[in-house]
């Protein structure tokens, strides 16, 4: 874009923001610098300028059309639409918003966080970090498509992506995305699977390649009662059962975090541990080898014994 065009667009923005009434095209061509040539070429210039400003998010209002008076259409930018208005903000609030933006450094939405931060700092309010504990927030979201997903959730747009099944085959999924979040070290995407017409949960690390937003905004409604924290709790994390296990002293630290110790022995503690997913629980138990032994229930115990027998059988030299 030439400097002259840039100047013209800035001047147009200033003039439309400063005006108290709608400016007609003839007002604009007469007063704003840079509109030249035949009336057709001025028209074309203005139409393009208007589209460009709208494309970058500036709301230009059309008004002043009164059929009785055969009025020409007029244009203006309302300052209240153009500018940031968060009401009065305190220094502590600015500091918290700055931390919220800085958390994105190097992560998915860092460019938008950075421009948001510049706008907040342009309010001219001094940040007050005194009341806030020393924190170095880091969102550390490295999924390249996170921004696309978050934006699609915000705009209620459908998304397409390839999802990896347990045999590493990829299947195209189309989703109405309702929510995205992490828990227990994993990222989950929840939404309505359009082809299956059911609510489903997907793991972000099992999405292959790019997520693509398709179609128009506001393409679907999020169920009014949808609340991600509750959804993940009910569908993934709610304990389905618990097991009584013996854990060797000084071992099994991961399991001990969720365990209730029922009896302390010489070498082992007996603990009751709730679990939400049997096969994952079995994996964790096996991971601990002979430091963790299942006492009950039988279903878990026999599954572990069977697995151990298979491991012994398969490993020989």
């Amino acid at each position: 874009m030439s400097s002259r065009k840039t100047e013209r667009l800035i001047n147009l923005t200033i003039a439309l923001l400063a005006t108290k009434r709608y400016l007609t095209k003839s007002d604009i061509f007469r007063t704003i610098e840079g509109y030249a040539g035949s009336s057709e070429s001025k028209e074309r210039m203005f139409e393009r300028d208007k589209d460009e400003l709208r494309a970058i998010g500036i709301v230009i209002e059309v008004g002043g059309l009164d059929p009785f008076f055969d009025d020409e259409a007029g244009y203006r930018i309302r300052p209240e639409e153009y500018s940031l208005n968060l009401g009065a903000l305190t220094g502590v609030e600015i500091a918290l918003l700055s931390l919220a933006a800085e958390a994105w450094k190097g992560a998915a939405l860092s460019a938008s966080a950075q421009t948001a931060l510049l706008k907040l700092h342009s309010l001219g309010i001094q940040s007050d970090f005194d009341a806030i504990p020393s924190m170095a927030p880091n969102l550390n979201i490295f999924f390249p498509s996170f921004g696309v997903i978050a934006q699609a959730i915000a705009a209620r747009k459908e998304i397409d992506f390839l999802y990896i099944d347990k045999d590493l085959n990829r299947h195209m999924r189309r989703l109405h995305p309702f929510g995205v979040g992490n828990r227990g070290g994993r990222w989950y995407l929840v939404g309505l699977d359009v082809d299956k017409n059911e609510q489903r949960t997907f793991r972000l690390d099992r999405i292959d390649g790019d997520v693509v937003a398709v179609g128009l905004s506001e393409a679907f409604e999020v169920p009014p009662q949808f609340y991600l924290v509750d959804f993940l709790q009910t569908n993934i994390f709610e304990p389905v059962d618990s097991a009584l296990v013996a854990i060797r002293h000084g071992k099994g630290h991961v399991l001990r975090r969720q365990a209730t110790i029922t009896e302390t022995g010489e070498e082992f503690d007996r603990c009751q541990i709730p679990f939400s997913n049997l096969s994952q629980f079995v994996e964790v138990l096996l991971w601990h080898g002979n430091d963790v032994i299942v006492i009950s229930p039988d279903s878990v115990r026999s599954q572990i014994i069977l697995a151990l027998e298979r491991v012994v059988e398969a490993h020989y030299v």
């Binding site: 998010g57 153009y82 500018s83 918003l97 421009t115 342009s122 309010l123 915000a154």
Partner: peptide, 29 residues
């Protein structure tokens, strides 16, 4: 003066701030 106030936040900027605040909430003791 006409341009002296910062522009309104874009929807992606709002998303970034909301997620950032959500995260801070989780981090504060």
């Amino acid at each position: 003066e006409t341009l002296a106030k910062p522009r309104a936040l874009s929807s992606e900027e709002v998303t970034a701030l909301l997620l950032g605040l959500n995260y801070l909430m989780d981090q504060i003791s």
